[in-house]
Amino acid sequence: MFDAARLSEILHAHAGREGPLLPILHDVQAEFGHVPDAALEPIAGALRLSRAEVAGVVGFYHDFREAPAGRHVIKLCRAEACQAMGGAGVQARLEAALGQRLGETKNGVTLEAVYCLGLCANAPAAMVDDRLVGRLDGAAVDALVAEVSA
């Protein structure tokens, strides 16, 4: 839940930093799971920006969420190196097993695309919550699905 007092603490912690908006937004998202609409006005006020400017920055970057993600987040790499190692097959198996497409949240699981995790010689790769997984194959996908569905 959004907590104005906690937001003030975050804003205070970044006072005096040059170009503080991204660090603030990262902290806000870490705290609340997303960047709540109610946070835009106070952030704008603290940085002497308009609410629209802050909303524009939030909207520009893929990382910032306007609504909370599921309990688990799977980011599957769709970039070329992973494609070269059968990434499309991994994607199809994952989507079929979870019953959802990339970009969707269902049953507490968010499945989304990422473009490169820097694991290009250990492809296909994904990030499951904070854990990286390389050399994904059918068995690894099934284990992942079991883990996030538990």
Partner: peptide
């Protein structure tokens, strides 16, 4: 240390500078 926010274009130097300043990575 500063952290990006998932925008490939921020690897372009001027876009990166805008992002560092807290702007859209244009």
């Amino acid at each position: 240390i500063r952290v990006g926010a998932g925008a490939y274009v921020c690897g372009e130097e001027t876009s990166l500078l805008n992002s560092l300043e807290g702007k859209r990575g244009v």
